[in-house]
Design a protein around this nucleic acid. Sequence first.
DNA 1: GGGGTTTGTGTTCATTTGAACTTGCGGCCC
DNA 2: GGGCCGCAAGTTCAAATGAACACAAACCCC
Lengths: 208, 208
Amino acid sequence: MLTERQRDVLEFIQSEQREKGITPSTREIQHHFGFASQTSVMQYLATLERKGFLDRHARKARALITPVQKVRITDVPIYGQIPAGMATLTEQTIEGHVSLDTRSVNASKNAKTFALRVRGDSMIDAHIVDGDVVILEDRKDVQNGDIVAALIDGETTLKRYVTEHGRPYLKAENPLYPNLVPARELRIQGVMVSLVRKQIPAARRKRG
Amino acid sequence: MLTERQRDVLEFIQSEQREKGITPSTREIQHHFGFASQTSVMQYLATLERKGFLDRHARKARALITPVQKVRITDVPIYGQIPAGMATLTEQTIEGHVSLDTRSVNASKNAKTFALRVRGDSMIDAHIVDGDVVILEDRKDVQNGDIVAALIDGETTLKRYVTEHGRPYLKAENPLYPNLVPARELRIQGVMVSLVRKQIPAARRKRG
DNA sequence: GGGGTTTGTGTTCATTTGAACTTGCGGCCC
DNA sequence: GGGCCGCAAGTTCAAATGAACACAAACCCC
């Protein structure tokens, strides 16, 4: 889709933005690549914009916008352990936020994304441990084998969604926990798309 | 810490950046607030910078940097599986980036942060599985029990750092893997501070 | 061999933009 | 009442910056 040189230019712009916080001017790009004229840069920018790799605000300084930055960061609210279930999820119950880029978290654009802090070790065999933050999407197409947050008896729990003979139930990934077969309805609140775990090094633990 | 008006200005800058992707120029700020002169803006910017709410690149256009963007989001390079070890970690070997806010990843300000993609299941009992991205810090104070990336025989591996009778070795968290006792030196490359895992829902897997 | 695309040079122009200087008003503290 | 500070007006300057025009070499495709 891009020529090698075009990619070079795009990557330079992105790396400058990451490092310095502002996008380079056409002259800065020019000097970095050793161009003797700005026109080359102008042409690269025009091409990158035409191909959709860049947005520009015409006639404004340092007004390059890499789609990366625009789409990338999602602020995901973390709902802590909520006995009352998702029906009551409001700003009030938000424990904090995680900021992640969409790709590293593999979130879709459309779906609502949120996070839950995991309590207990019912999913230990899926390598999800107490304290992990699980990122979920509110999507409709839950399928056999997905890990989901569901509302059971007024509590939100994380379990694996399994269908057997067309009938769904929730499976804990820990032999010590029972499977949950829904009496009436199964309210799926989100499908797990990602997990974030903090690991506190010993040196840090002492201090605080 | 800030007067009401100062906060207004700061919030305007931040909201413009969020919406348009670029920071406003002094004149844009001026017109938004209806100032008849730019000097007012200059003074606000100077104050905000002095109080640490803003960074500026002198004499550059639209070069305001809000701490939000600066401090919070860390762009962490992901080094893939690297046979040659960290000595050769260059831009070339970067597999991609994860963007995380410093707090959700509990990274320190000073330490260099990077990420590795985990291969194999040698840390399975620590609930780190194949494909996980582990975020590490380059820090000196490694302690008993920390999970570290270390250079052994020219390869970087993730293991638990254990000292016994004052002698350190690397412990795999999987009974199938042997412990690694360093013959001569043990080169610690980073201490694990966080973990990010992608979980691909079934519906997504089909499509791509 | 013609036509298109990519990459590049050299130059000029008009705007955009940050920065500086001087002046003034009103509130607050001692 | 004097001094300090936050806030603001009015003006000017120089640098930074985007944009345009004309020209040209290298390459690929058919």
